[in-house]
Design a protein around this nucleic acid. Structure first.
Length: 878
RNA sequence: GGAGGCUUAGCUCAGUUGGCUAGAGCACUUGCUUGACGUGCAAGGGGUCAUAGGUUCGAGUCCUAUAGUCUCCACCA
């Protein structure tokens, strides 16, 4: 007895079970068959502390679609999953937990104890996100699961660090960097987010030394930094201040003497034209300071309090408190000229949103210029391609303008920098292996405290996960990977850095295609965020609607790279489609009484009915477009094609047409069932990459060959299976049935009221071959093909296939009929005019492609036939 | 300041290299216990494709300008 599907579609019944089966059968593993072509993807590793959110859901869905598609096409697919240690993010979480639960800071615990806590946390939460990925149906090879701080990845990190250092591409230097006073670490440029904030422009006057009563007025948004001022700059060609250059000013509140200098960096028209220069706390001032050899006075501590050394009475105050106090004092002492409100961009930490403090510090950097050049070339040459293409520009702009990458972080959670200092002789050693003593003088060394930027290890992900620096089989077979799927928000953080790292360390690009998607927003189009509380939990959606519906909703109705909104309507409509597929399958299944072998054989050509050929032909065409679109990463288009074929063609027409044949029984019934099984199975295969669970569940219930739809071959276009004549026949009849339904509906004729149909047509065979459909689907009691309709008691319907007459004298309003037919006639005349004009146009006929011209000719033919029909129908009304 | 996106039906969006009478989902109107599905079936209404020019036989699609809107980068203190 064949397995039956439950009446109601309930994904909870089978999703977990099916996933477990797939995993147990080993379908996620790459096929060891060397003859198969490899296809590989590395997952953008979610943060180990994270929960699955809609962004992940979209990202994983797209990857899984590609991987499942390729797997069914016979590739040996490897999709590597894993998680990222997420340095700052994780450390913040653990510190927060520590603070809340125990009232302790990481300093209370000390480095070693604290790291134990973080590892505990990782063990506890790391598997959570992995399990959530499974809920989505992700067909990753879990045997290949990696973590950015596991042994292999850590080895790769060290290898890369030492190599870059030896090449002079990593250096340690005293520079101005972005400092997060809350996380107490340096940040890279990419990790600073600029937000517009309301602030003030304080105009402050600095007295000129030796010239009683003379002042220079500077304007600043950050008065507290004046403690570190070491000059005031004016433009060299600014006549207003020409005589001041070289003079000395007395810094208010501080009393220190600073020079007036001339530098082209100053914009004459902005502010007062005089700029206070604070090399220790402003990147531009730092550059000015270097040019003029100014002292660098750092006035803040790591927590952004004012330093004891230079703070004077403000020492120990928080920077913002100091600002208030200093403004007050400046005002009291008569130095404050005016306060001008302004909106300005303030840099904030991308993890904790604290205002970033630019300050000078000793840090480690990656020299970007030599790395950026080949990375840029790989993309501009087309070796690596962005989809959609417009993101190429985002990438190249950044790559062309990026500064050296600050990679050291004053955190504890991360890859510790493999540098060792000897206090005895001052030697620094960078080494792949840990060392205890200085190679130069033999004194004990101490290891660098800093760890590396999280993104330093993520940058190696495509090859570190495949075993690099070992030359493993995996690396040889699956690197470079084929495609990287990720959001546009991490092109700088991650994609760019993977590209230059891959090129530098493996000599190969890490992937051929970068497939970029947008953000998932809420129904109002707002970014989902914790603070807004508008996040939609994908796991709740899965519980409620099923993973297939979620995947469908995410994969459809939006163009690549664009943001999308996630709404109730969207997920409901997705669920409705799954439900439709379920029920169509139930219908097919409940009518299969024959043996599997019998049903699986596709009928011989001569046994196929006209509608069989029609649906097979249409299916075949859909197969082609789906393949083409998937090959071009047009996932939404591919899915929309399957959707409309399944619902509008297969369910609404073919199944309806099939009913009469099934219930008639006999040989034709076997044929139609075979076609039903064939096309439905084909639909399931086409849909499997998008909706893996439900397609597997139904496929298993249907007659099938093989163990799982997951490893069944993806449908391919078959040029032999094209039946243009039959397609035309059926399309013609569908148009007639629709026209009849429309007329009857307009005239409020109950569907139950059957009527005879008279047809005047030159497509006699089309009508005769499909009489049963007209009867069944257009409430026709009997079909009569005539040369001309004899009476004037009929509703007439003009079609390009001929004239249809339905004797329904009691419902006809002749005036209305005439008006309607006339309107239709006019409209048709308009079309005739439009198309004939086109065809009379010399330019069109000579320049347009022949196929297009041919199409227009056929169109004109249709309109002319329609005109004949309408003329006849109108004549009948007289 | 620089770059890019978006503007198509009441709403949310498709429309791939220019070429069938511009589509879908949702919403709306009308009818339907039609042998899987009311999470459904049938029929229908609804769009000067932001505006103005241009290229072309032909423009929602390409070019230029304008307006509105969003995002990213830069940072003039």
């Amino acid at each position: 007895m064949r397995k039956e599907l439950p009446k109601n579609y309930d994904p909870l019944d089978f999703e977990d079970r099916i996933y477990a089966e797939w995993q147990q059968k080993g379908y996620f593993k790459p096929d060891p068959d060397k003859k198969k072509k490899p296809f590989s993807i590395v997952i953008p590793p979610p943060n180990v502390t994270g929960q699955l959110h809609m962004g992940h859901a979209l990202d994983e869905t797209l990857q899984d679609i590609l991987v499942r598609y390729k797997r069914m096409q016979g590739y040996s697919t490897l999709w590597i999953p894993g998680t990222d240690h997420a340095g700052i993010a994780t450390q913040i979480k653990v510190e927060e937990q520590l603070r809340v639960n125990e009232g302790l800071t990481r300093y209370d615990l000390g480095r070693e104890k604290f790291l134990e806590r973080v590892w505990d946390w990782k063990k506890q939460y790391g598997s959570r996100i992995i399990n959530q990925l499974k809920k989505l149906g992700s067909s990753c090879d879990w045997d290949h699961e990696r973590f950015t701080m596991d042994e292999g990845c850590s080895k790769a990190v060290r290898e890369v660090f030492v190599n870059l250092y030896n090449k002079g591409l990593i250096y340690r230097g005293f520079r101005i960097i972005n400092w997060c006073p809350h996380c107490r670490t340096a940040l890279s440029d990419a990790e600073v987010e600029y937000t517009e904030q309301n602030g003030n422009f304080w105009h402050i006057r600095y007295p000129v030394k030796g010239e009683e009563g003379r002042f220079v007025t500077v304007a600043t948004t950050r008065p507290e930094t004046m403690l570190g001022d070491t000059a005031v700059a004016v433009h060299p060609e600014d006549d207003r201040y020409a005589d001041l250059v070289g003079k000395t000013l007395i810094l208010p509140l501080v009393g220190r003497e600073i020079p007036v200098i001339a530098d082209e960096y100053v914009e004459r028209d902005f502010g007062t034209g005089c700029v206070k220069i604070t090399p220790a706390h402003d990147p531009n001032d730092f550059e000015v300071g270097k040019r003029h050899d100014l002292p660098v006075i750092k006035v803040m501590n790591d927590d952004a309090t004012i330093s004891a050394e230079y703070g004077g009475k403000y020492a120990g105050m928080d920077r913002f408190e100091a600002r208030r106090e200093m403004v007050k004092d400046l005002e009291e002492q008569g130095y404050l000229v005016k306060v001008e409100p302004c909106v300005h961009n303030v840099g904030t930490c991308y993890r904790c949103k604290t205002t970033v403090e630019p300050l000078t510090s000793d840090q480690w950097f990656v020299k970007m210029e030599p790395l950026a050049k080949p990375a840029l070339e790989a993309v501009t040459s087309g070796e690596i391609r962005f989809r959609p293409e417009r993101f190429t520009k985002t990438y190249t702009n950044w790559m062309e303008n990026c500064h050296d990458w600050c990679i050291s972080r004053q955190l504890w959670w991360g890859h510790r920098i493999p540098a060792f200092y000897c206090d005895a002789c001052g030697e620094m050693t960078v080494s792949k292996e840990d060392i205890e003593v200085c190679p130069k003088c033999g004194a004990p060394v101490r290891r660098e405290e800093d760890v590396l930027d999280t993104w330093f290890s993520s940058a190696l992900w495509p090859f570190s996960t495949l075993g690099w620096p070992e030359q493993t089989e995996d690396l040889a077979r699956y690197y470079p990977t084929n495609v990287l799927v990720t959001g546009y928000d991490i092109i700088f953080f991650w994609v760019a850095r993977m590209i230059f790292s891959g090129l530098e360390h493996t000599g190969k690009k890490p992937f051929s295609t970068v497939f970029i998607h947008g953000l998932v927003r809420d129904a109002q189009g707002r970014k989902m965020s914790k603070s807004l509380g508008n996040g939609i939990d994908p796991l709740k959606i899965i519980e409620q609607y099923g993973a297939d519906a979620l995947r469908f909703a995410l994969a459809t109705g939006n163009a690549p790279g664009n943001d999308m909104r996630f709404s109730d309507e969207k997920i409901e409509s997705a669920r409705n489609f799954v439900n439709k597929l379920w029920n169509a399958s139930r219908f097919v299944l409940m009518n299969l009484t024959e043996e599997d072998e019998e049903l699986l054989a596709l009928p011989a050509e001569e046994e196929l009915a006209i509608e069989d050929k029609w649906i097979l032909s249409e299916f075949n065409r859909i197969v082609r477009t789906v393949n083409e679109n998937l090959d071009h990463y047009e996932i939404g288009v591919a899915l929309a094609e399957i959707y409309s074929f399944t619902w509008d063609r297969f369910c609404d027409w073919y199944i309806e047409m099939a009913k009469s044949r099934i219930f008639d029984g006999g040989r034709p019934a076997l044929t139609v069932k075979r076609v039903l099984v064939y096309v439905l199975t084909g639909i399931l295969k086409l849909l499997h990459p998008f909706m893996p669970f439900v397609t597997e569940e139904i496929w298993q219930a249907l007659p099938h060959e093989g163990e799982s739809i997951m490893i069944a071959p993806y449908p391919v276009y078959d040029e032999k299976r094209e039946y243009p004549a039959e397609e035309q026949d059926i399309e013609r009849i569908i148009a007639c049935i629709t026209a009849i339904r429309t007329r009857r509906s307009e005239m409020n004729v109950a569907p139950s009221k059957k009527a005879k149909l008279f047809v005047v047509t030159k497509y006699e065979d089309s009508f005769r071959n499909t009489e049963k459909f007209l009867q069944k689907l257009a409430s026709v009691s009997e079909l009569a093909i005539v040369d001309s309709y004899p009476a004037d008691d009929a509703v007439s319907i003009a079609t390009d296939a001929g004239n249809l007459y339905i004797p329904l004298a009691e419902v006809i309003d002749f005036e209305k009929e005439r008006a309607r037919l006339t309107a239709e006639y006019e409209k048709n005349e308009g079309e005739i005019l439009r198309v004939s004009k086109k065809l009379e146009n010399e330019g069109f006929v000579s320049k347009a492609p022949a196929a297009v011209v041919e199409m227009e000719r056929a169109k004109l033919q249709k309109y002319l036939e329609m005109r004949a029909s309408l003329t006849e129908a109108l004549a009948k009304l007289k």
